[in-house]
Design a protein around this nucleic acid. Structure first.
Lengths: 205, 205
DNA sequence: TAAATAAACGGAGGCGCCTCCGCTTTAGTG
DNA sequence: CACTAAAGCGGAGGCGCCTCCGTTTATTTA
């Protein structure tokens, strides 16, 4: 939840070591990401960078040194949120029965998507520019989901004849649903409905 | 070459009449488009709008009144250029043998594309936002090309077993060719080559 | 031609972007 | 510690975006 530099995490060649930041620099970087996360959530990706720097208590120059373009900052924030979402899967799994964990995770997924509606266009640009980001992150999400689904199926609390991709597909409707003000409620009901379907015939393995 | 308002030219409902501009307004609008055309060609679509206004001898406010967003201005300039390209087809056809007209038009097409390289990304955004523009304009281009090809085929100066879409397809390589500095020469040779192929077996009808 | 009015003008002002570089702070070193 | 080099800071400054509204101008009417 607090990676210092985003950097070449696990995939690539690891050729150039990320090189630890000086303590103050690390502090500033973290605060910038923190503030940016709420700013983007509240005002969209066009939030003023100067305002973000101000709220983080640093100069605009500092922001730009850490994140040379707006897209860099957006990417880091976005990545952080996806990682938190995935981490929640483990957490839920270890504190709840598997089917409840799955359900709650999906509800959280809805919340997450809710903050991202309308950013679709911007994110698409980001992903077009740097498609590695997209495949990396979407891979993580589906991995998290798969673990929840398989655990619940193994435990027998949901039916055994569906897999993660089925569930993801079902959730897909959330994206495409029209952007009305009751979107969130509709989506929550959709998740409940889906869970009912999954529980029906549970334990038949 | 001098349309006053771009406006609903031929397609749509024509419900709201474009309403003639005051003489001075029309003059300013024309100059803005003129200046913008060279500015975009020389510096790309990110050219400074304030600078364009300045060079056109009008205030920035005037520019924004005529073109509320950068995209509006880009669209008008782009449309104007495509129309000039299409108009050239008629002109060439009436002053040259049909095969020469076709060849020269294709060379001009190369010149046109040359100025648009690198704008691909911006244009794609424009077309995604307003795909009607794209289909309208690309329709015109292929119409112009079709007329040239059919005339040459009818006249017997190129072979009769190809049509405009074949030629357009052949020209497609121009887009995708790498953006080296000899791109233009390569493209001109490609057109020559294509014409040789088209002339081979001419008159067989 | 003169007055009336609608249309158009234009630039000041407020904001955001981004760069540049002199100043400050940290992390080593003796 | 004290000192120093390297790392980091931050904000002024220059530019561009866009809006707003008081002033100017073309056109219409008399």
């Amino acid at each position: 939840m607090d990676d210092q530099q985003t950097a070449t995490a696990q995939g690539a060649r690891e050729a150039t070591a990320p090189k630890p930041l000086r303590a103050d620099a690390q502090r500033n970087r973290d605060r910038l990401v923190e503030v940016a996360a709420t700013a983007f959530a509240e005002q969209g990706v066009d939030a003023s960078l100067e305002e973000i720097a101000r709220q983080a208590g640093v100069g605009i120059g500092t922001l730009y040194r850490h994140f040379p373009t707006r897209e860099h900052l957006v990417e880091v924030v976005y990545r952080r949120e996806v990682e938190a979402l995935c981490a929640a899967a483990d957490d839920l799994a270890s504190h709840h029965p598997a089917d409840m964990a799955l359900e709650q995770w999906m509800q959280r997924f809805v919340d997450y998507i809710a903050t991202k509606r309308g950013l679709a266009a911007s994110l698409r640009i980001l992903f077009n520019t740097n498609s590695a980001v997209f495949s990396d992150l979407s891979g993580r999400v589906s991995l998290a989901l798969r673990q929840l689904v398989e655990a619940a199926a193994a435990e027998g609390s949901i039916r055994g004849d569906v897999d993660a991709s089925d569930v993801l597909h079902a959730l897909g409707g959330i994206y495409s649903a029209p952007d009305t003000k009751d979107w969130r409620d509709r989506s929550r009901r959709l998740v409940k409905l889906l869970m009912d379907g999954l529980r029906f015939g549970a334990g038949k393995r």
